[in-house]
C-alpha cells in the first residue's frame, strides 16, 4: 500500500477515535492541556511506528495502548515537579455532566480511572483491558470492583454531607 493511502487510512482512523482518545487521556490526566500534549505525542508515535503494527484490525487497541503509555509517562514526569494534590485537578470550567460523579472519580487512582473508562465507555472486555494495560484479568476485575465501590462510597458521603449542610 502506498504512503498516500496509508496516510489517508491513518487520518481517518485517528479522527474517528477522537472521543476515545479524549476520554482515555482525560481519565488518566484529568487536565485538558495535558490531554492535548499526550494525544499529540501519541499520534506522532503511532504514525512513526505504524510499520510495527502487524494487523490493522487492532489499530484502535494499539493506539489506545500508545496513548495510555504517553499519559502515564506524562504523569510520571509531573510527579517530579507538581505537588500531588494538584495532579488530578479537573478543569471544571469544562462542562461536565455530573459534577459529583466527576469529583468522586478524582479519588480513584489513574489506573482505576482508565479501567473504568475502557470498560464502561469504550466497551472493552476485562480480558482485553488486561492485555492493553499489561495486568492480569483478575487485576482488571479487581480494579473495576474497587473503583465502583469507591465511587459509590464517595457519592454517598457527598450526599450525606450535602444533607447536613
Amino acid at each position: 500500500m502506498n504512503k498516500a493511502r496509508t496516510d489517508a487510512w491513518f487520518s481517518r482512523e485517528i479522527e474517528s477515535m477522537s472521543d476515545t482518545l479524549f476520554r482515555v487521556a482525560f481519565s488518566i490526566l484529568r487536565n485538558y492541556a495535558d490531554c492535548e500534549d499526550a494525544v499529540q505525542s501519541a499520534i506522532l508515535k503511532a504514525y512513526q511506528n505504524l510499520d510495527t503494527l502487524k494487523e490493522r484490525a487492532y489499530f484502535r487497541t494499539w493506539a489506545v495502548r500508545i496513548l495510555k503509555n504517553e499519559c502515564f509517562a506524562l504523569l510520571r514526569k509531573q510527579r517530579t515537579i507538581v505537588p500531588l494534590s494538584e495532579q488530578t485537578d479537573v478543569n471544571y470550567e469544562m462542562e461536565v455532566p455530573d459534577l459529583d460523579l466527576n469529583r468522586a472519580f478524582d479519588v480513584l487512582s489513574p489506573e482505576e480511572r482508565l479501567t473504568i473508562t475502557l470498560y464502561y465507555y469504550e466497551g472493552y472486555k476485562t480480558a482485553e483491558i488486561a492485555k492493553l494495560t499489561d495486568v492480569s484479568d483478575s487485576t482488571v476485575r479487581n480494579r473495576l470492583s474497587r473503583a465502583r465501590a469507591a465511587l459509590k462510597e464517595q457519592l454517598t458521603k457527598r450526599s450525606v454531607f450535602d444533607e447536613v449542610l
Binding site: 479524549f22 499529540q40 469544562m94 462542562e95 455532566p97 455530573d98 473504568i116 465507555y121
Partner: peptide, 21 residues
C-alpha cells in the same frame, strides 16, 4: 457512570487531533 462521567469532547481537542494528524 456511562453517561455522565465525561464532558463532551471539546471542539478544540478535535482540532488538536486534526492538527496532529
Amino acid at each position: 457512570l456511562q453517561k455522565d462521567l465525561f464532558p463532551k469532547t471539546p471542539a478544540a481537542f478535535r482540532e488538536t487531533v486534526s492538527r496532529s494528524i
